[in-house]
């Protein structure tokens, strides 16, 4: 029997911070939050800085893979700079994700909210970029400050992505 299925050491709550606005910056946090709910773990998602793009109505379906300054893409940054490279890489990656049933970002956000996970936007970033609740997809529960985030995260694990 694995230790984690033994009860006491089971993770009960996880609060995941999404701080990057690229495809590879957004998906891991979403998959972890969704996966937590699937395991019966309470989940909070906190979007901050460019991670907010994932929950901004006008942007959440336009998130792209970073092809510059991303050595794991295995293409030289000079090539990654060429027009259309990021769009092309994003398209290819989305195709592969679709094969293994990973939804688009807007759809995933909708589904994650349906699992009962909570979605929050970072107060500081919202003020900095002059945003309001109207800019966000309806699944966003609230704009909260960092103090409130820690309150909500209390007794659980915090994951920064």
């Amino acid at each position: 029997m694995t230790m984690s299925s033994n009860g006491d050491d089971k993770i009960k709550k996880v609060s995941i911070i999404i701080s990057h606005g690229s495809l590879e910056g957004v998906y891991p946090g979403l998959i972890m939050a969704n996966g937590a709910r699937m395991e019966g773990i309470e989940a909070n998602l906190f979007f901050t800085f460019f991670g907010l793009d994932a929950i901004i109505k006008k942007r959440s379906d336009k998130i792209k893979v970073a092809t510059v300054g991303n050595p794991a893409m295995h293409i030289p940054s000079m090539v990654g700079m060429l027009p259309g490279m990021s769009t092309m890489a994003t398209k290819m990656m989305k195709k592969e994700m679709d094969k293994i049933e990973i939804p688009s970002i807007p759809e995933f956000i909708e589904e994650i909210a349906e699992t009962g996970a909570k979605l929050y936007a970072c107060r500081a970033t919202v003020d900095m970029f002059h945003l309001s609740m109207d800019d966000f997809v309806p699944e966003v529960d609230e704009v909260i400050n960092v103090g409130r985030f820690y309150e909500l995260a209390g007794g659980g694990q915090i994951v920064f992505t």
Binding site: R37, M38, E39, G40, E114, T115, G116
Partner: peptide, 10 residues
């Protein structure tokens, strides 16, 4: 999630 709370898939 309502029908199979706390870990529905499993």
């Amino acid at each position: 999630y309502r029908l199979f709370p706390d870990g529905p898939a499993k």
